[in-house]
Nucleic acid binder design. Structure first.
Length: 109
DNA sequence: CGTCTGACGATAT
DNA sequence: TATATCGCCAGAC
C-alpha cells in the first residue's frame, strides 16, 4: 500500500506543473522526496482525481505511458495538446516542454 | 519465499 | 531513433 502522505506529496508536486510543460514520473517522485520511485509516482497519479493535472506527467522517453488506445490515454494526449504541447509522432520533446522548476523560461525555439 | 508485472529509468549498442 | 538489458520497488499470487 502506498503511504497516503506519499500520494499527497506527489500530487502536490504535479499541481505545480504549469500548462504547456510536462514532467517525468521520476522527476515528480524526486521532487516529492522519493528518489528512484518513478513507479510510485505512477500509482499516486492513478489515484488522482480532477483538480490535479495528471496529464502533464509522462515517462522519461517523452512518451505518454498510458496506451494511445485507452480512453485515458487519448484524454491525456488531448489535454496536452490543449495545453499547447506538440507531439512529434507519439513523442514530446522534453528539451522544449520539460518542466524546469527553478527557471521556468518560455519555450525556446 | 520466488516470480511476475507495471501510468518507470539509465545506459549501451 | 529503436531495442535490449538491467536496476528499482510495491503488489499480487
Amino acid at each position: 500500500m502506498i503511504p497516503p502522505l506519499a500520494i499527497e506529496r506527489m500530487l502536490a508536486v504535479v499541481q505545480r506543473i504549469p500548462p504547456g510543460r510536462v514532467a517525468t514520473y521520476g522527476q515528480v517522485a524526486a521532487l516529492a522526496g522519493y528518489p528512484r520511485r518513478a513507479r510510485l509516482a505512477g500509482q499516486a497519479l492513478h489515484a488522482a482525481g480532477d483538480g490535479v493535472p495528471w496529464h502533464r506527467v509522462i515517462n522519461a522517453a517523452g512518451v505518454c505511458s498510458l496506451s494511445a488506445d485507452s480512453p485515458a490515454g487519448r484524454l491525456q494526449r488531448e489535454r496536452l495538446r490543449a495545453d499547447g504541447v506538440e507531439f512529434r509522432g507519439e513523442r514530446v520533446s522534453l528539451a522544449r516542454y520539460g518542466w524546469r522548476p527553478q527557471a521556468q523560461a518560455p519555450v525556446l525555439d
